[in-house]
Amino acid sequence: MDVKELIKELSLLDGPSGYEAEVLKVIEKKIEPFVDKVWYNKVGTLVAEKKGFGKGKLGIFAHADEVGHVITKIEEGLFARLEMIGGVDPKIMFAQRVRIHTKNGVAKGVVGVLPPHLQKEEHRNKVPNFDKIFVDLSCSELGKYVSVGDICVVDMKPVELNGKLCGKAMDDRAGCASLILAAQLLQTLRNYQDVYFVFSGQEEVAGPGAVSIAYELKLDRAIVVDVTHGDVKVPQFVQIKVGEGPAICVGPSIDREFQSKLSEIAQKHNVKTQIEPAPGRSGTDTDEIQLTGSGIRTALVSIPLMYMHTPVEVVDPKDVEETARLLALATTVE
């Protein structure tokens, strides 16, 4: 499987939190050949199951949803207003093309912006919130069908930047890709534990996707694969580098023993990794998975990513491959 093509394909799919079905369908098709069975739980989480030759139940999680928008008002003259699903910086919204999923198909829109000629000091000195942001639907045949509650995402086709990939929803389709690649690797490596590849929804709104299945499966261990801020200075924190391998997280929401075992495996097999401290919550599904049922031993592996929650998120496909290798290796031991 070509890793770049896989990431690009997943990035192009639209699936804001709660509307991941289209994304999951594609992932299901990709992973099915590599596992024993695939199924969905009550809240729509996709599970791909592969029995091991030993014992123990390991869940490997990635979330399929992305940040996005929902249409909240229709205005006269084929304009609409929107709000965000998950955390989106309004500063990156202007003059973006958007795709709106209506009952009649995908409508096109443009997020309007005042031209400099008409801007006044009040426009320049303030960051408009989502109340001020509008979508122009007049450039779309389906614009007239757009209605309140329709899901909307920024229209962005992935581009390659010196081997790195840039596009929307790399958070966490890059993670999803690493799970699919790990499943493929298990065709040659043999997994000791029963492995459940879990593609969950609603991570961006801290929803029920991951925790419901963690409970249902009565997992012993869980590895969550998400993304982390790469190549940017965060005061007091070590700088995680894009292209230097996945970051293994340490902190209260991570099981210390499980984490050190994962680090050992990485070292033993020359998987390039970095260490990322998370002194409080990790801000990923890990936080809640750990508290599921009578507790689950957790680890968090993060793919370094630039410009998170913007349409130009950047990942290095090499990091995705290294993550896949680490995941596959982790299933082979007790």
Partner: peptide, 13 residues
Amino acid sequence: TIGVIGYKAIHIQ
């Protein structure tokens, strides 16, 4: 040459 104008993630502003 293709490039992108990104900006710091909302989480770390």
